[in-house]
Amino acid sequence: MSFQPVKFYQTGTLTVGNRLLAQDERSVQANQMRSNSINSGHRACQGCGEALGARYAIDAAMAESNGQLIAANATGCLEVFSTPYPESSWQIPWIHSLFGNAPAVATGIAAAMKVKGRNDVRVVAQGGDGGTTDIGFGCLSGMFERNDDVLYICYDNEGYMNTGVQRSSATPPAARTATTMPVGPEPGNVFGQGKNVPEIAMAHNIPYVATATVADLRDLEYKVRKAMRMRGARYIQIFVPCPLGWGAASHDTIRLARLAKETGMFPVFEAEHGEVTSVLKIRNKVAIEEYLKPQKRFAHLFGKHAHPETVARLQAIADRNIRKYGLLAEGGN
């Protein structure tokens, strides 16, 4: 798919103007034939980034696999809000086994498809950041290392949301969670910890690793479709703001996702066989405060007992990402 960023700006917004594109370049969601893999009526909170991300990702995977898709799901918000008995939102074959084993379950499904000669049937596994970067990490690394034919999608909302917003290894420094309260000399989550799973995935030399956000849904669809055209272990981490866990307004989900990218806090890139092949450049660089302030999980950094030095440390993390991944456009601001 070719991007025409100049044309998008002509619409006057950052949204993608489908009308400006050729029929075959339009988004999956714009197509009436989209699969609606995760149907409406599920019980996600209003403005849930994870529900949005899953919808776009799985519909894109369905489009690319001609509807021949099976999904394995880890325990977490996505699983809980989509399948309270006796209802299920899933319009595709879907299995939930445990919190920490979705990659291995997917490996088993892929192996079954292989013995049965069903090379047309493709397999995705999906889970939250906790299910991915913490408890499911052993299974994930095993699936990567064996290069099993599975696309794993991590919905990163930076915490254990389903159990009431506790810290995960994807929780950013300073963030308030139920287990990193804004008390004591270093309020919120500590600095110097955490796991960068996209980079760890790259270290496995798997065919494809990408990050995406729910602010750039075209980019998200493009990456899922690209991943689905490849074989072997593939990993996509999607940044999905959680209004409930972050203490943010439901209508700010897309804005926060965009700010995470535009500040450099969440680098959006692609890598093949361990090497970065493209980055989504920052369009208008934004100071970190703009991203932090709408979120109550960072509220303790501002106001009466402000922690400007902590804000500066977060800014430094964002700046380091910008340097490391070359996120600023040539001659950009």
Partner: peptide, 16 residues
Amino acid sequence: ESEFAAMSVAIGSSAA
């Protein structure tokens, strides 16, 4: 990579 994965793979393959 572990027995937990062994049983989990078997869960996936059996369900498929």
